[in-house]
Amino acid sequence: MIEPLNTFVRKTPNWLLYLIGAAYPAWLLYAGLSGGLGVDPVKAMEHALGKAGLQVLIAVLLITPLRRFSKFNFLSWRRALGVIAFFYILLHFLVWMVLDVQILSQVWADIVKRPYIIVGMISLLILLPLAITSNNISIRKLGPRWRKLHKATYLAVALGGVHYIMQTKGFEYEPYIYLAVVIGLIAIRKLPKKRAAQPVKRQVA
């Protein structure tokens, strides 16, 4: 079952992933205009996009541990998923700016004054160069620096989780669960790699 799935993942064309990724905001827009998002479609869309961005980034962070601890390999989806997440978060920001706050001076005041917005903005700004360099030319040009640069994803996702917690009004479980998952997925990468050590031992014996 694993092998056919991995083959399917490897053979999925990127354009199909982008198309599926674009379908979600398009559906949100349609639902919002036709009353499907309730009486406050602006907030509903804003929150849905932010959460979807965080969820897709969590999926991105899942790929490496899945490869390490199971045979599932989604590596060839990772770059497209990262770009899709970036667009969700960018749209999340644009909905907040254009449809929610609306007044440019107030947008700017919020960006420099409100801690949860500052944290969210930093996360978005970290993701920006990562999205821009998510293409073969950049990978070739940047060489080993590309991998280093894209490790900034960890910080961006963690800040996204913090931003989610900071915008709640009282105590809610959900945002803490998200942040715990994010921290867990980052921490799991720090586990010592026992598997790599074992074959060496056998060779010696």
Partner: peptide, 20 residues
């Protein structure tokens, strides 16, 4: 409010493009 401005408000019920 420490986390947002109280200078304006969004009337609910006006859909996507309700003006503040």
């Amino acid at each position: 409010h420490p986390r947002w401005s109280q200078a304006s408000e969004r009337p609910i019920g006006g859909g996507f493009f309700a003006k503040r």
